[in-house]
Amino acid sequence: MSITAVVLFSVVALFLLHGLWRVLVSGSGVAAASLAASYWLIAIPFKLMLPDLPLTPIWLPFLYPYALMAMAALLWLVCYGRFSRLGISFPEAPPLLSAYFLAQLTMLVGFVVLAWLFSWRTLLAYGTLPPLLCGMSYIAYRCFAFRLQEQASASYSWHWLGSGALMAPVVVVVSGDWLVPVLLDYL
Rank of each mutant, 00 (worst) to 15 (best):
I58Y: 15
W59C: 05
L60R: 15
L60M: 15
P61T: 10
F62A: 09
Y64C: 10
Y64K: 14
P65C: 12
Y66M: 09
Y66I: 08
Y66E: 07
A67D: 11
L68C: 10
L68H: 15
A70P: 08
A70H: 06
A73I: 04
A73L: 02
A73G: 13
A73Q: 03
A73T: 05
L74A: 07
L74E: 01
L75K: 04
L75Y: 07
W76R: 02
W76I: 03
V78G: 10
C79W: 15
C79D: 15
Y80A: 05
G81D: 10
R82H: 14
R82C: 08
F83Q: 14
S84G: 13
S84V: 06
R85T: 10
L86V: 12
L86I: 12
L86M: 12
G87I: 07
I88S: 08
I88T: 10
I88A: 08
S89P: 09
S89D: 10
S89R: 13
S89G: 10
P91D: 00
P91Y: 00
E92N: 14
A93F: 11
P95K: 12
P95C: 02
P95W: 09
L96D: 14
L96W: 15
L96Y: 15
L96I: 11
L97M: 02
F101A: 06
A103C: 01
Q104H: 14
M107N: 03
M107R: 02
M107L: 03
L108I: 05
V109D: 03
V109M: 05
V109Y: 07
V109W: 06
G110E: 00
G110Q: 01
V112A: 12
V112E: 04
V113L: 13
V113M: 11
L114I: 00
A115S: 14
A115L: 06
W116I: 05
W116F: 12
W116K: 08
L117R: 06
F118P: 00
S119R: 14
S119M: 11
S119W: 15
W120T: 05
R121Y: 00
R121P: 00
T122G: 00
L124A: 11
L124G: 09
A125N: 05
A125I: 03
Y126C: 10
Y126I: 09
Y126E: 04
Y126F: 14
G127F: 07
L129H: 08
L129A: 11
L129R: 06
L132K: 02
L133H: 08
L133V: 04
C134V: 13
G135K: 09
M136A: 14
Y138Q: 06
Y138C: 02
I139T: 04
I139M: 05
I139D: 02
A140T: 05
Y141F: 09
